[in-house]
């Protein structure tokens, strides 16, 4: 089935994605309104993929994590770095997932390709 794409970010990030054809955009202003917008995207039948920046996801905090745990298969939500490049999230969610799942610390070697 075909779905539209949404992006939540700062004005510049959103501009870039709009130029590539993303249908729904939202510029983050404050926590509550962004949460409401995200909730809107989550229940929308049209939206299949949501991009949200790491920075904003962290700012929204616990509520965002709760929404991700509770969500069904769609929409797919991906966290992306924003326009102010080089922002690495404090906690890499995937690494935490590995630790919890496998029950061991896996050290990822950075391979230069």
């Amino acid at each position: 089935m075909s779905y539209k794409v949404a992006v939540i970010g700062d004005a510049d990030t959103v501009t870039g994605f709009a130029l590539s054809g993303v249908s729904y955009t939202y510029v983050h202003a404050d926590k509550d309104r962004t949460l409401a917008k995200l909730a809107e995207f989550m229940v929308s039948e049209e939206v299949g993929l949501v991009f949200i920046t790491h920075r904003i996801a962290e700012e929204i905090g616990a509520e965002f994590r709760r929404m991700m745990r509770a969500k069904k298969l769609l929409p797919v939500v991906l966290r992306i770095p924003d326009f102010k490049t080089g922002y690495i999230p404090v906690v890499d969610e995937l690494y935490e997932l590995i630790k919890r799942t496998v029950g061991a610390e896996i050290v990822v070697r950075a391979e230069e390709g």
Binding site: Y3, K4, A11, V14, T15, G21, G48, L74
Partner: peptide
């Protein structure tokens, strides 16, 4: 002006999403 242009751009991008099964788990394909 850049932001204005982005508003004029055609924004109808569609993603084809379907599901498949690995070992009994439902997994999406995009």
């Amino acid at each position: 002006e850049t932001r204005q242009a982005s508003r004029e751009a055609k924004r109808e991008l569609e993603v084809e999403i379907s599901t498949r099964h690995i070992m009994g788990i439902v997994v999406p394909t995009l």
